Amino acid sequence: MASFEVFAPDERRNIAYHLTMAEGAGADKPGIVFLGGFRSDMGGNKAVALEAFAKSQGRAFLRFDYTGHGDSSGDFELGCIGDWARDATDAITALTQGPQVLVGSSMGGWISLLVARNMPERIAGFVGIAAAPDFTEDSMWAGFDEAQREALIQAGRVELPSEYDDGPYVITRRLIEDGRTHLVLRDPLPLPFPVRLLHGTADVDVDMSRPLKLMEHATCEDLRLTFVKGADHRFSTPECLALIERTVAEIA
């Protein structure tokens, strides 16, 4: 990964980030913040491509690693949704100025919605890419069989296979229980800014029903959902990256 800087919101956290302040960036041009997915980092294709796009548009751009991810401090297995939402809120508060367009990929879509709920005055728009709000409850917990639920409760953890990594990844009881305190599809969800949801029909990690549920649930005067036939969860083909850039430009 390219060089990065470190932001320490408190004595327990060192958040790695990369901030681009493009020439001409200012209050009249909302910045862009990329929020990555579960176990991903700020060096992914979408984040890097969007950074180059932001620079070409004269916009500030922030990408960062949640604690326990990438180059940030902390142990991934000890983290949870509340921790990562706090990381995002602290990073946006300390490292950006003025309104921001949040671009959230997978779990980053859920984190973006939590940030928007906490500080709506700083949000100029939201682009969700395979957004996965409430996934710890509606996907993980709901998909566990009896033995997995018992293991989670008794041992505090369960291992799941992953097609993206060499070995299985651990889901903790803390992750599930904390996720229940940060659900966004159970209570009113006002989004007083433009929202665009992008989703692939070949996404096997986040079902197509998820963005439809978010679209139905949220209160938003300018919300559009686009399905891309054949796109998978990564949503990182040249065509998908170009669509992300066009979508961000539309609402920024």
Rank of each mutant, 00 (worst) to 15 (best):
W110V: 05
S106M: 08
P120L: 13
S112R: 03
S162E: 04
A116L: 02
P161R: 12
A116T: 04
A132S: 14
I153V: 15
G143I: 11
A142M: 06
M107K: 05
L102Q: 02
V170L: 09
E163A: 14
D165H: 13
V115P: 03
A155M: 06
R122E: 02
L102C: 06
Q148T: 13
S139H: 11
S139M: 09
L160H: 08
E137V: 10
D134P: 04
D138S: 10
S105T: 10
R157P: 04
M140Y: 15
I111P: 01
D145E: 11
V127H: 01
A116H: 05
F144W: 04
A130H: 04
P161G: 06
D165W: 15
E163D: 13
E137S: 12
M140L: 15
A147R: 13
G109T: 08
D165F: 15
A132M: 04
S106W: 06
V115G: 00
I123S: 02
Y169R: 12
G125P: 03
E146V: 10
I171M: 14
E159Y: 12
V127G: 00
N118Y: 03
A142D: 09
G108P: 01
A116M: 08
E137A: 14
E163N: 14
V101P: 02
Q154T: 15
I129R: 01
A131I: 00
A130G: 15
G143V: 06
I153D: 14
G104P: 05
Y164Q: 08
L160S: 08
G125D: 04
A131T: 11
L114G: 03
V115H: 04
P133I: 05
P120Y: 10
Q154W: 09
I111K: 01
N118M: 13
E150P: 00
Q154Y: 09
E159V: 08
G156F: 03
F126L: 15
R149K: 15
E159G: 01
Q148H: 12
L113W: 04
G125A: 09
G108K: 01
L113T: 00
D166M: 08
L160I: 14
E146R: 11
A116D: 00
M119I: 14
A130L: 09
I123H: 03
V101W: 00
A151Q: 14
F126M: 15
V158C: 04
E163T: 12
E163Q: 09
R122P: 01
A132G: 07
G128Y: 00
S162M: 07
Y169S: 06
A124R: 12
W110I: 03
R117D: 10
P120C: 12
S162Y: 06
V103G: 05
A132Q: 01
G109K: 02
G109H: 02
E150K: 13
I111T: 08
G156H: 09
P168T: 13
D166P: 02
E150W: 11
L152H: 06
T136N: 11
G125V: 06
V170A: 13
P133G: 05
E150T: 13
S112I: 02
P120G: 07
E163W: 06
I129D: 00
F144D: 05
G156T: 01
R149L: 06
F144H: 03
